[in-house]
């Protein structure tokens, strides 16, 4: 009998302990979920790692799926924070709170064997619409142009179409690609290809000897410098969005992601940090 009592006491203590620890695990304050743009995700996971190191017990889950998913998940509260790699459009600005954590630029890339060094917006527009089909027509070799376009739904495509005021159905593409890396590999392997990718990614690959060149847009050199000082026309903010004004851990994380403490991570990921003043402007809506 005595033994039995002992076991009961032990069992009660054990189950109570388990219950308590289970409660702690389920407490909503210790986990954050971020979903959205595949451009922003690598940056946020690095920031999240540093945040987790500073706040033991906090777990941050970063999932990709595109800007549209980031907005949808933030709206439906599936995620605490959505990641978006473009400016908010129309009624999205009223619906979401947005916080810029970095900037990214998109520019045209060509193979280094292509003698063409500059293209006007008009020429780029005509090339992508299939009205110019040979490099000869824009001062290059006598060779047909291979137009590389992005798959539907990618934010890079949306930004490109928005800047050149195009519909995707107007583009006559020869190759349709998924991510930036596939675009860079396609252009690096084809001297007559033209594509557009994130400037940060392209600069990183150019430094490592990949045979591609970045072209200026509207006379502005394509580099992280011009993206940072805001002169480069084809650029986008990388945003964290929430459906409600953030509070608690969500607010803490967003503040951390915007602080100077993570500028080195932003630069490491080939993005451009935003000056603190701009941050204040974007966060007040």
């Amino acid at each position: 009998m005595k033994n039995q009592q002992k076991y009961t006491a032990l069992a009660v203590t054990l189950s109570l302990g388990m219950l308590l620890s289970a409660c702690q695990q389920n407490s909503p304050k210790t986990q954050l979920t971020l979903t959205g743009s595949s451009t922003v995700a690598p940056l946020t996971s690095e920031i999240a790692k540093r945040f987790e190191a500073k706040h033991p017990g906090v777990r941050i889950d970063v999932q990709t799926g595109g800007s549209s998913r980031g907005l949808a998940d933030a709206r439906s509260r599936l995620a605490n924070i959505g990641m978006v790699s473009r400016n908010l459009k129309g009624n999205e600005t009223g619906e979401f709170q947005s916080f810029a954590i970095a900037r990214d630029g998109i520019s045209i890339i060509l193979n280094t064997n292509n003698p063409v060094k500059i293209l006007s917006n008009e020429q780029i527009l005509n090339i992508y619409q299939g009205k110019i089909e040979n490099w000869k027509q824009v001062g290059g070799k006598d060779a047909p142009i291979t137009v590389v376009n992005k798959a539907e739904g990618r934010s890079t495509l949306e930004l490109f179409l928005g800047y050149f005021k195009l519909e995707n159905s107007q583009i006559k593409a020869d190759v349709v690609i998924g991510d930036n890396q596939q675009g860079i590999k396609t252009v690096a392997g084809n001297p007559n290809a033209i594509g557009y990718v994130s400037i940060g990614t392209a600069e990183y690959d150019i430094e490592r000897g990949v045979p591609i060149q970045l072209l200026p847009i509207g006379g502005v050199e394509a580099s992280t410098k011009t993206v940072q000082n805001g002169t480069f026309p084809l650029s986008r903010p990388l945003l964290l969005v929430t459906a409600k004004p953030p509070s608690g851990l969500t607010k803490e994380f967003i503040d951390f992601a915007q602080s100077q403490e993570v500028y080195d991570i932003v630069k490491q990921q080939n993005f451009v940090p935003i000056a603190t003043k701009n941050v204040a402007k974007t966060s007040v809506r």
Partner: peptide, 17 residues
């Protein structure tokens, strides 16, 4: 295919892909 075959076909008849 992307780094070997496609450039080869591209030389034959662009765009290769």
């Amino acid at each position: 295919g992307l780094v070997v075959l496609v450039p080869l076909i591209n030389r034959l008849h662009p765009p290769g892909t």
